[in-house]
Nucleic acid binder design. Structure first.
Lengths: 177, 177
DNA sequence: AAATTAAGTCAGTACTATTGACGTATTTTC
DNA sequence: GAAAATACGTCAATAGTACTGACTTAATTT
């Protein structure tokens, strides 16, 4: 297959659309939306020498103070080795502290410090502002709809990871940790 | 294990919620939703030895056949060097072909081949299925709402990148704002 | 002819992620 | 109490995706 003048490499000049029963419109919108959504905190993180991974760890430690390393790995769906470097940096810079588990002393419960809480809020602020702007003319119904849609986009078996923090709704809280 | 008993490193045991006026609920949902949304094609891509970057290139070349390298860089917001490796692989594997620009022969217009079109569709299929499932009980209004929300999440100055492909909106142009 | 532009390439670096292996402390099991 | 399992940390090696900067080639514009 060295010859490149075959039919196989003939250019297709028509664009894909939703013709094929595929929802390209929303696929593309989701990409753009997420790209810009994450660009907000990225700029703040750069000042700290942190990356997106630090943000995610910081977010979940603030959302679920006291969660263990194993639980964090489960939520982020990354490996221990990937987490190690990031977590170490956050601990060394006093954004996160580890406490020995009270029940099981092998475990390390992760808590944010005041500094870590402040950074988490600073990172979330522009994202929240963006969301608020996007929901500007929307009522409670519309907001609930967006939440329902996003939740439905999550794998069903992983949906337990969401409802962990109360303050939301849906009586599906089954007393975590 | 030096002195870590300062006030600055005292653990905060309460979780952040939407108390601080920050929309953690949607921030978190958006993270989970996008994580799982991209995990679908990731598994297919692995079979080809491709990554997420290949997917994005393939997607936009299929959505906008004939776009130039410069245009693609603008849409993806990455550098030429980052694109180079990925694009080369897609060309070498006959998923994408380059044609000399008719007006300006310095330009390289990018087109999908039949093979590239097929892969793009295969990658989009599970994502589209997920979206359809998430919108299962939803009507046109709800769908339009989601689209409007996602579009509003995109930076205004970059919103031009979206409406490029017609074939979707029938009569609704940009009449109002 | 000179400057600019589009694209490709080379070298070097950083971040995030991976797998595999191993060490240490602690808990559980027998 | 010894052995096995668990939670965590760490070392080494690798990959994918991104970055900056510098340079080349070809084509267009001035």
């Amino acid at each position: 297959m060295t010859d490149r003048n075959h039919a196989a490499v003939k250019p297709i000049r028509t664009a894909v659309t939703d013709e094929d029963g595929i929802d390209f419109a929303i696929i593309e919108l989701f990409f753009f939306a997420y790209r810009d959504f994450t660009s907000d905190p990225d700029q703040i993180l750069a000042d700290y020498g942190f990356g997106r991974a630090h943000h995610r760890v910081l977010h979940f430690v603030n959302r679920r103070p006291g969660l263990t390393v194993a639980e964090l790995l489960d939520v982020l769906k990354i490996t221990k080795q990937s987490l190690a470097r990031v977590l170490k940096q956050l601990i060394d810079t006093d954004h996160i502290v580890q406490l020995q588990g009270p029940r099981d002393r092998r475990q390390r419960e992760l808590y944010p410090t005041a500094k870590g809480r402040a950074l988490a809020l600073a990172l979330a602020r522009p994202q929240s502002r963006r969301i608020r702007a996007a929901l500007e003319d929307s009522g409670t119904t519309e907001r609930a709809m967006i939440e329902r849609f996003l939740e439905a986009m999550v794998n069903p078996e992983l949906r337990t990871q969401i409802g962990i923090v109360p303050a939301k709704m849906s009586g599906k809280s089954h007393g975590d940790h």
